[in-house]
Design a binder for these strands. Sequence first.
RNA 1: GACCCCGUCGUCUAGCCUGGUCCAGGACAAGAGCUUUUCAAGCUCUCGACACGGGUUCAAAUCCCGUCGGGGUCACCA
Length: 434
Amino acid sequence: MVRVRFAPSPTGALHIGGARTALFNWLYARAKGGKFILRIEDTDKLRSKQEFVDEILNSLKWLGFNWDEIYYQSKRFSIYHEHAQRLLQDGKAYKEKAPDRPGEAVIFKVPQQKIKIQDLIRGEIEFDTSIIKDQVLIKSDGTPTYNFACVVDDATTDITHVIRGDDHISNTPKQALLYEALGFTLPKFAHLPLIMGMEGGRLSKRTGATAISDYRRMGYLPQALVNYLLLLSWAPGDNIEIIDIKEAIKLFDVTQVNKTAATFDLKKLNWMNNQYLKNEDPEKLTDTLVPLLAEKNYIDTNRLDREYLVSLVKLFQPRLTTITDFPDWADFFFVEELKIEPEAQKKFLTDDLSAEFRQFIEKLDKLEKFDILSIEAGFRELVRELNIESKALIHPVRVALTGKTVGPGLFEVIYYLGKERTKKRLSRWIKGGI
RNA sequence: GACCCCGUCGUCUAGCCUGGUCCAGGACAAGAGCUUUUCAAGCUCUCGACACGGGUUCAAAUCCCGUCGGGGUCACCA
């Protein structure tokens, strides 16, 4: 049975690169009907933090990567010592006391040989281990080193496929030597290309947000982020780009993953997010929006007109790049003190439109039905009477009502704003009032 | 520096393994237009790449070699 693992170190948040590694492991496990195992590499007591463990686990859950087993390296120290002892007894390792350190370290005698690694993605990679110096297995404070703990864990938890970042290629010969020395069978390896930042080099905080939780906070949908990550170094074929995870499980094949490092492109992620957002169930979208709106005091969750809120969400849905665009763009529906963008006011509300606005209000008052079609009919009629272009009045009215030059169709805006609020906002620009 | 990995439009990629159907296809971005009530969406179009040089071959993006370029690793970090 296929058993893969994702082994983050809780010294920081789960980032884009880690998430992609987790995704490919998870996909492989699901595709093969195997197990996806999580291993928390918390041997570094100083840098590992519980908050990061929580953060990583939450991000993984949010992305939908459910795991079948979880291990903590900090709870397995006796296992590492046991295996180190074996190597000591076999004469494959020795102890050494460094002058400036308290205890003794266990060090692996690295055999000098040529070693060939079969990589599922890259094929055969050959190394000459004579340039590798003896490796510390157990540090003088008793904690295992990364390479040692990694090998012992992968072997004792029956990992069949090690799918990890490219940056581990040079660890592979060291680990292979340890497998041999310990008498373990070598798993299969697949080294994923790294994800680079737009400026070249590894994706880093300088280049933009790297933590998955940041993307969540910024209003990205987990499906969109996963879909985007999926397209980095892998393609489902047939020019498919938007693909749901179930379909991806069917099509995924590690051996078809690219060898080339991919650059993280926020613009494409944004496009992807919009694609998912406009097809998202409005009810669900409303659910995620409610806490955000409550936080801004835009709504009172105790007396919420949900149906009304859902219609507002639908109004903006095809335009959203991120979820958080909604509170920013739809603010005028929720606040009584309308903020008018200075630029917008300058552009469309400098001329005196008292007469036009007054007549529009009269039209609205005369409407038999206050619905979108009637509002538009009334508006068109007025424009005809005034003998002006529609847009000559549409733009100023939009700014007066929303404070912005961009937004949904004006007649929908008026309908959902309601007659009273519409009149009130227009009358502000009428000299001498209504 | 040594060792290892990689090199198709600005970016993500298809094609490469199994040479010809590729004067290289799709997507994002950019630009133009349609629609129009702004923006977004949608639709149409444009721009744009096989890193370079040698081979092999009737034929190379595809196979081989070299060069150059990019990246990674060289810790008692993980």
